[in-house]
Design a protein around this nucleic acid. Structure first.
Lengths: 209, 209
DNA sequence: TAGATTGTTAATCGATTAACAATC
DNA sequence: TAGATTGTTAATCGATTAACAATC
């Protein structure tokens, strides 16, 4: 069952606050106020205040929030303080890019193995990780207790990739293919759709005269 | 000035409808109804109807919409029927992935040149495109009348990349770095934030008991 | 014809914004 | 103290959903 928590638009803004907080932290500043955030991010202070309130942090009137405390509260809220191990399925251009992104470690994500169906790629090493055959997925998932799958295969193979992951007992899927996956309702799916973003950009560009 | 158009959440769903439409088209089906969409995408028919209405398409009671007509109406609405030329700044892992993504052509996007600051990469060819030095950007942008820039550099270099693009007369930026760019208000920026998606996924996963 | 589906107007829901007392 | 900023309650806004007459 789904508990209710912060509104998802608020959740989406939290990583943005983290980038500002880390900047403040590097500069050695102890306090940050919602007006500080709003100036950098062009948001209204009240929105920042509401968003932060969802994490449970308590501020101090006149001062704001303790930078380090707020950082750890947000990390905690997102569960990014302990690593989640993930499998990546589809080691083409996008998959390779994700394999090479070091930022995931800081965001609680550790890609422990990568898979592909193409014999051209299987056995090769990308960003220090060997690409394995899909046959190895079920056993390895159960053995390593991996709970998260990342799908970066072309649309035509996405459903099949999802089926394999579900079959292997995964409980969440990060789906980078532009299709809607059919999965049991116990499995959480987050679709990351670059074409949605491009659509918004296109409309915004077309809207100017 | 910004005209008002469809709500952005609706715009974000349009590419999803396109994937269903292209499937129907391949199968040679002439008509599609909002109930057809809703079954595949797990959306309510009324929402699909509202979304499609924003594109100006007119349906037929009892039948639905003509598949081919709807496809071209959506393409037209998004401006994806004619190509926009773009520059890509930052040719690391993510930049390379975008350079190699053939799907952009169908979405009206043509990456005509790629740039980087690192002398290790400049001169190399990635997915058939030579990586150029940033010095070449302003002249080339003006000469080619390029209006769109894609930023795939690490956060630390993102603002500088944006400044170069703005200086070169670009009118839109697709920003893949996790920071808020400071640009004149005549420039449209669309931020594509993978960590927002990861935050949502993390919260959804954490919300189950 | 009967009934599935459209387009449109109204109701609901949820997120954003405003207002303001409490506080350091 | 005075005033900036918090936390909370209420008002507004915009998107989603419902209702229903029109239509093929």
């Amino acid at each position: 069952m789904l508990k209710n928590s912060a509104p998802l638009p608020s959740v989406r803004r939290l990583p943005l606050y983290l980038t500002v907080l880390e900047e403040f932290s590097r500069e050695g500043r102890e306090w940050i106020s919602t007006t500080d955030f709003s100036e950098v991010l062009f948001l209204k202070p009240i929105q920042v205040r509401k968003d932060l309130a969802h994490t449970g942090i308590i501020g101090k009137p006149k001062k704001g929030f303790k930078v380090d405390e707020l950082i750890s509260t947000i990390y905690n809220f997102l569960g990014w303080n302990n690593l989640t191990e993930a499998f990546l399925v589809g080691s083409g251009a996008l998959g390779s890019a994700l394999l090479g992104y070091e930022g995931f470690q800081r965001h609680g994500l550790n890609i422990v193995a990568a898979f592909d169906v193409s014999s051209d790629i299987i056995g090769k090493t990308i960003h220090g990780k060997e690409i394995l055959s899909m046959d190895k997925l079920p056993d390895l998932a159960k053995r390593m207790q991996v709970k998260l799958g990342i799908i970066t295969v072309p649309s035509s193979g996405a459903q099949q990739a999802a089926d394999s992951l579900v079959e292997a007992g995964i409980s969440g899927i990060w789906n980078f293919s532009p299709i809607k996956l059919q999965v049991p309702e116990t499995v959480v799916v987050q679709r990351e759709d670059i074409s949605s973003g491009l659509a918004v950009l296109s409309v915004k560009l077309g809207r100017f005269d």
